[in-house]
Design a protein around this nucleic acid. Structure first.
Length: 569
RNA sequence: GAUCUCGUAGCUCAGCUGGUAGAGCAAUACACUUUUAAUGUAUGGGUCCUGGGUUCGAGUCCCAGCGGGAUCACCA
């Protein structure tokens, strides 16, 4: 990994060495006790107060015998003022002149003890009395600067680098941290809301023998001891319902689900769905519950229900509009699907230019029409209710129309955010629905569900009437934080594995007996493999290396021909 | 998976009809005790993604590959 250090990395490694020579450990072990944070100092300004803070040293502005810099800690940043006469009160100014001015770098972790004051320019700052290096940064961070108008210069924007090195992204791009803090606040607000009803947060298996509860391609793995295939969960629905069978009134789980499908700006192979199931409720109750919950989350996590998303303002204030799927299709296409046959619907779908084929059942056709012509129109939160029975194999039939189900989806900004049912608890109906899924599978629908016999057995023991709701956490967080890609709301979005250039095998150089101080220079001088050294004449290597040493003014002894001849190549 | 597009210094980016590789910031050195995109002077820094081809000559044109992004299709 050490091959090909950039100039700045060489400088920082040299500084590391010089610090050690001065008796300053660049990676000290001891706890550094801070007394406060940068944000607290600014909010509770007390001139002359002695404070101890720690963070990353950023943006040094050296002005001779005094310097300014920004210290970034987890709460924000504060300016520090380092004056030679204060950090070095005696005759010996070497700490300031050598360490502060030359051996500290952008990105180093430092701790300071100092006095709070305000500069002539009116910025709250810390006059440093004592400075401790806490950890040296050996790689230069991207330098991002913000001017008085708030314009960001030289921003670190390459999505590939940002996602692969989120640690760097978080350090230099302030807004990124805010998004992730908001994500946690949103989830906490949700938890708080559910807990206030006495519902129980639970954990159910991630590794499942049958990937049930949704239609999706699973990730498959293998359990060696049992010698059986196992699947990473695509949903946790069937496990949570088993817990309702077991007698809990309400259970919920933030479920990390895995689906082996395409990746794009709204899909990641692993993603989080919050699912909640409450006994003795139906989907009407769940609609009320969901809109109150979302309103609560907005107020708690954002302080408002009005959210800017792109060029739109979305208002999460309840109540949300409610429209049945039939009404919606009628509104946007003029077509009434009520009591129409599969063929009639297919013909209509074709007539409005949708791509449909013979494998699609009635439910799927209706879904195509809705997805193609209606869905995108719902910008403000809207509940779409009463989906066709074919699309919803785990959902109870509608109390007044057996072709429909008691299901709703919450649409916001033209996308599905939540999905809920009056849960199907009739085990005989449930078995038939699974069998229908099997037929769809045989017809060529590769998304049809697997049958879970144990789940059917649980239902046979009796599940109370129950309503369940699932909400895509990433989708919700994207909306509430004004982000248009899922990668912005996942710390470590999935990416193609990075190829690290193998580079020269430095171990082999060491094994050949080349002195450690020379190895990187040997490589940089052009001998980047043992093979190349073997092929070259020792006298030529000798001349090249010493020529390189002279040219680069290396502070290491010249290499001897006898050294080169002693290498075991 | 399809189409379009991009890959140049540590970072952000220029580089025209092919002719010795550029800027700002960062780094290094010097100056500077209230700066804040600090400033001034000087210096160093490049596998122009990789591999082929065309050409006297390729960062630039052509082909292939790798990687990213955007749009579209499927899934949340």
């Amino acid at each position: 990994m050490i091959h090909h250090l950039s100039e700045e990395e060489v400088v920082r490694r040299a500084a590391l060495q010089k610090l050690r020579e001065k008796g300053i450990e660049p990676f000290p072990a001891a706890e550094f006790k801070t007394s406060t944070t940068s944000a607290f100092i600014k909010e509770n300004y007390k001139e002359g107060e002695i404070v101890v803070v720690a963070g990353r040293l950023m943006n040094m502005r050296i002005m001779g015998k005094a310097s300014f810099a920004d210290l970034h800690d987890s709460s924000g940043k504060i300016q520090i003022y380092i004056a030679s006469d204060i950090v070095c009160p005696g005759e010996d100014k070497s700490f300031y002149n050598d360490v502060v001015k030359h051996l500290l770098h952008y990105g180093d972790f430092i701790g300071v003890t100092g006095t709070v004051f305000t500069t002539k320019m009116g910025e709250i700052s810390i006059q440093v009395n004592e400075l401790t290096l806490l950890a040296k940064s050996l790689k230069p961070l991207p330098v991002v600067k913000t001017d008085k108008e708030g314009n960001i210069h030289d921003a670190f924007t390459d999505p590939e680098l940002r996602y692969r090195m989120r640690y760097v992204d978080l350090v230099v791009n302030e807004k990124v941290k805010e998004t992730f803090i908001a994500r946690t606040h949103i989830m906490n607000a949700m938890r708080e809301y559910f807990n206030s009803f006495g519902y129980l947060e639970v954990d159910t298996p991630v590794l499942q023998p049958i990937p049930g509860g949704a239609s999706a391609r699973p990730f498959i793995t293998h359990h060696n001891a049992l010698d059986v295939p196992m699947y990473l969960r695509i949903a946790n629905e069937l496990y949570l319902k088993r817990l309702i069978v077991g007698g809990f009134e309400g259970v919920y789980e933030f479920s990390r689900n895995f689906r082996n499908e395409g990746m794009d700006r709204t899909h990641n192979p692993e993603f989080t769905v919050m699912e909640i199931y409450v006994a003795y409720k139906d989907y009407n109750w769940m609609m009320d519950f969901t809109e109150s919950m979302i309103e609560h989350v907005c107020l708690k996590a954002l302080g408002t229900t009005q959210v800017q998303y792109g060029d739109k303002v979305i208002d999460f204030k309840r109540p949300f509009k409610r429209v049945s799927m039939t009404e919606s299709i009628q509104e946007f296409t003029g077509f009434d699907i009520t009591e129409k046959s599969e063929e009639e619907i297919r013909t209509f779908a074709k007539s409005i230019g949708l791509e449909v084929d013979e494998t699609m059942g009635k439910g799927k056709l209706i879904d195509e029409i809705f997805g193609g012509k209606c869905e995108g129109n719902y910008i403000q939160p809207t509940f779409i209710t009463d989906y066709p029975v074919e699309m919803s194999p785990l959902c109870k039939r509608h109390r007044t129309n057996p072709d429909l189900t008691e299901r709703f989806e919450l649409m916001i900004n033209g996308k599905e955010i939540a999905n809920a049912y009056s849960e199907l608890n009739d085990p005989i109906d449930q078995r038939e629905r699974f069998e229908e899924q099997m037929r769809l599978q045989e017809k060529g629908d590769d998304e049809a569900m697997f049958i879970d016999q144990d789940f059917l057995r649980a239902l046979e023991y009796g599940m109370p009437p129950t309503s369940g709701m699932g909400i895509g956490i990433e989708r919700l967080v994207m909306l509430l934080t004004n982000n248009s890609t899922i990668q912005e709301v996942l710390f470590f979005p999935q990416m193609r594995p990075e190829k690290f250039q193998s580079g020269p095998d430095l171990k082999a150089f060491e094994a050949a007996g080349i002195s450690p101080e020379w190895i990187q220079h040997v490589v940089k001088a052009g001998y980047d493999s043992i093979q190349k050294l073997k092929e070259a004449k020792p006298t030529a290597v000798h001349q090249t290396l010493n020529g390189y040493r002279k040219k680069n003014k290396l502070e290491i002894p010249a290499i001897q021909l006898s050294d080169i001849e002693s290498w075991t190549l």
